[in-house]
Design a protein around this nucleic acid. Structure first.
Lengths: 143, 143
DNA sequence: ATATTAATCTATTGATTTAGTAGAGTTTTA
DNA sequence: TAAAACTCTACTAAATCAATAGATTAATAT
């Protein structure tokens, strides 16, 4: 399961993608529209800024905005950033690999194969789920 | 990520599947072979017994054993039993569904589509990963 | 019968993670 | 220079995770 933090991050990014290149959007605005606790959202947006997905502007007329094209930000990146590994076990993780201490021999483990398949299928779908596609999908539904 | 509990459960089940129809296997035996804390393993096996996957026998010569064919137990069942939902959000879970309180309208949510795809692909793979296949795979590797 | 073996049940615990909150500080702009 | 809005540090309550302890019950062999 994704953490609430990650879900909030995705919703905030989709919200900002809908307003791409329309100037800064205030935390307060996102918070109210997406029903995300403001203080919690602050921390999330800061993290996305540190990851160079967002940029911010302080002072009056300030706020957050996407600095990457909506087609270049996908759910795989966001989930890895906020929640860490996507794989179901550390020993099949690409980005957060570490061996299971209780397995003496990883090669012999019969469950890794399945978990590697799950990981690869999941990454394929999430990597393909860009903000651009999500926004487009929502616009279609609303018509 | 799977919990350690779930990983332990899977390894214990694979161990029992290797010994299917060969009589009860003691907790101590599984615990040592798979490096699982004994007391923790006790609780796990009990849970698998309550789920009618295992049965136990007390006293001398007692232990745990599979009461379902290894081909009829898969990772999807075990993960759901021990860790709960497989889906990435409650609102796309088949077995543990509940709506996101902050979403007023689920139909409009652009991220559900991707998460439903992830869920379906994951279930397909995990549902297909039976103990029988895992044991077979391990035997092949060991040759 | 009784000792031994091995699962069962109740309960508690420490560590970690999750989901926030509080409040002072800094930067920008009108 | 006041107000707006992000930034940073620190803290906290609740839940979950990963066990552990100890007494109890049931089955078997002798």
């Amino acid at each position: 399961m994704l953490s609430k933090k990650c879900k909030y991050a995705i919703h905030a990014l989709v919200y900002l993608a809908e307003r791409y290149e329309q100037g800064p959007v205030q935390i307060q605005d996102i918070s109210e529209a997406q029903h995300i606790p403001k203080k919690f959202l602050e921390a999330i947006l800061l993290e996305l800024r540190h990851a160079k997905i967002l940029e911010s502007k302080k002072g009056k007329g300030g706020g957050y905005y996407l600095i990457r094209k909506p087609a270049e930000v996908n759910l795989m990146q966001v989930m890895r950033l906020i929640d860490g590994p996507i794989a179901l076990l550390p020993c099949v993780s690409l980005n957060y690999y570490h061996s299971c201490d209780e397995c003496k021999n990883e090669k012999i483990c019969g469950i890794r194969d399945s978990l590697i398949s799950v990981r690869d299928e999941t990454l394929k779908i999430l990597g393909n789920s860009t903000l651009a596609k999500i926004v487009k999908r929502e616009r279609l539904i609303n018509k």
